[in-house]
């Protein structure tokens, strides 16, 4: 338990600092690279919570595909590469709003869950997960397949030049 806690705190601090990097850096490509650290940290937290299949899906889809898509987006929109001001004039109100929200959420969570412990006996078996998907959640699974197809066709229709 101690080792897991140490790992949690190291990963958590890295995630929060990189997330601040994503929203604060003045270089667009650096933001994408900071995002990779946050996503990898999330995958590591899933492994700490014994959700190994989801952790690898996170690595494959987020780090493998979504970040590449972001880099293509940066390239195609010829986003300025130098150190420029990428923020609008709402810095102060946005900071106050997010600080207020994080305070509210933390107070609520401490009030609601206190010191409830997460007890992990064994990692979730991928076979259990897959049999659940294909028995209990087969209709949402098919719906999400159709949604993915529709979204990709829609993206092509939007982006093609004619």
């Amino acid at each position: 338990m101690v080792a897991q806690n140490v790992a949690f705190w190291i990963i958590a601090i890295a995630m929060v600092l990189s997330a601040i990097g994503v929203v604060r850096t003045s270089n667009v490509v650096h933001a994408a690279l900071y995002l990779v650290i946050v996503l990898a940290g999330a995958a590591a937290q899933y492994i700490l919570l014994a959700a190994e299949f989801v952790a690898w899906v996170q690595v494959l889809i987020y780090i493998g595909a979504v970040v590449i898509l972001f880099l293509f987006g940066i390239m195609l929109t010829r986003s300025p590469m130098g150190d420029l001001d990428l923020d609008n004039s709402q810095r102060m109100p946005a900071f106050v709003a997010s600080l207020a929200l994080v305070g509210t959420l933390t107070a609520l969570l401490v009030d609601a869950f206190g010191n409830s412990k997460v007890v992990i006996d064994a990692p979730t078996k991928t076979s259990v997960l897959s049999s659940d998907i294909f028995r209990l959640y087969i209709v949402p699974f098919e719906a999400v397949s159709i949604l993915l197809l529709a979204a990709l066709v829609g993206a092509i229709v939007l982006a093609r030049r004619d």
């Binding site: 997010s98 994080v102 401490v110």
Partner: peptide
Amino acid sequence: MILNQFLILAAVLFCIGIY
């Protein structure tokens, strides 16, 4: 590990995203 450490980490990340 307590549940709240994960939930509060998620809350902090969410608010950074909102910012």
